[in-house]
Design a binder for these strands. Structure first.
Lengths: 219, 219
DNA sequence: GTCTATAGTCGGATAGAC
DNA sequence: GTCTATCCGACTATAGAC
């Protein structure tokens, strides 16, 4: 069915790029139709209008980040389901997940990501799709991992801590332009990302690692 | 000169609100003129056009956050200038600064803040004003405080750590809508903010506090 | 300086041929 | 399903009266 080359499909792809680059208001249907190599009238025909295309775009991309994060999400889910309570394992899973999120948001600046950012900042009708299909689960998983790591059982507390943690990672996406300007970068290099990952990882270790008087803590 | 009630002034105020709520494309000159209680033609007259008004708006607001943060920024500057190198004092200053930033961005969701966020995410001609007058100094101060606290003397490292730290705070602004949805809030209450501040503060303590294997060590 | 009126452009949606 | 042609509304900017 999805020949990947149907007009329908090309419009969605063009929409992703155009909305990501210019926002809903900034992207015109003419622009999108041209990018898709089809006629302007195809948008109302297939999607009922510009807004319909916008929603279709989000239905599509809502599945994208999960795909990349899926292996790790599955691992975490399995861990939590098994009701293991080993903090070290949980910490490892958490660091790995955040590391992937960093990669996803910074070194692969896919248009999807900017689109998602925009919608979070300025929710419209597409926000529900995004929240329910992408955000909710991830926040919950991180929150539960934190609970295992720290032993904190107040859900609200671990949720807020999850947001703090996510904020550390997302800063390098939201603040991308500021950071580039401040560090005189054109874009993140692999080295930059590695350095950031290392700093965040170290940070998490110090902040979350269960108090251990043990001297085996690696430096 | 600034009667606070000149047409010029009312347009800037109306512009702040309109651009903050709807973005540059989304805010129409009609809307702004109406909000300002003046004529549409006044915008080209005073500012040369919509874009000129947008720049004027940023010239104005670029001074706002500094005013609120000024006492603390001055204190930090004095501390750094005196070349004191006491980590505990630096840590206190840092926590206080971030606490104010949290307050500024979350419990006072002034339109200025959303405007600044938008421009950072999607830089236009006004980005320079913003970066030079607001962002640059703050990042540098935080970075230097971190250097004093941790003893790290690689400027690049402390800068990245500064961004991590800022990210923790800004998450509660950028992710506001997501967080409200996830925690079933209408807005942050004073209690919420207090709780967040406490968590961030504790986090900073653990992550930055000079290595001490014994919690009894205190200066 | 402030207004009305209007020019000129561009937006999204539609009708109807093919 | 895809196209052309067109409508209509909204936009920014300008001219010119007052």
């Amino acid at each position: 069915m999805d020949d990947k080359e149907t007009t329908n499909e090309r419009l969605i792809q063009a929409g992703i790029e155009a909305f990501a680059a210019n926002g809903f208001n900034g992207a015109s249907t003419r622009m999108i139709a041209e990018k898709a190599g089809c006629n302007l009238a195809a948008i109302p025909y297939y999607f009922g209008g510009k807004e319909g295309l916008y929603l279709a775009v989000f239905e599509r991309i809502a599945e994208f980040p999960n795909e990349l994060l899926n292996p790790q999400i599955e691992a975490i889910r399995a861990f939590l389901k098994a009701n293991e309570r080993d903090p070290e394992t949980a910490l490892g899973l958490l660091k790995q997940l955040l590391s992937t999120m960093l990669e996803l948001n910074c070194s692969h600046p896919a248009p999807h990501v900017q689109l998602i950012t925009r919608e979070q900042l300025n929710p419209s009708s597409a926000f529900d799709i995004l929240y329910n299909k992408v955000i909710k689960r991830e926040v919950n998983l991180i929150s539960r991992l934190i609970a295992v790591i720290t032993g904190e059982d107040n859900r609200r507390t671990t949720t807020l801590q999850a947001f703090i943690l996510i904020g550390q990672v997302m800063m390098f996406h939201h603040g991308r332009k500021v950071i580039f300007r401040h560090l005189d970068l054109q874009d993140y290099s692999a080295t930059d990302i590695g350095e950031i990952r290392q700093l965040i990882t170290a940070w998490i270790d110090k902040a979350l690692k269960p108090k251990q008087t043990d001297s085996q803590i690696r430096t």
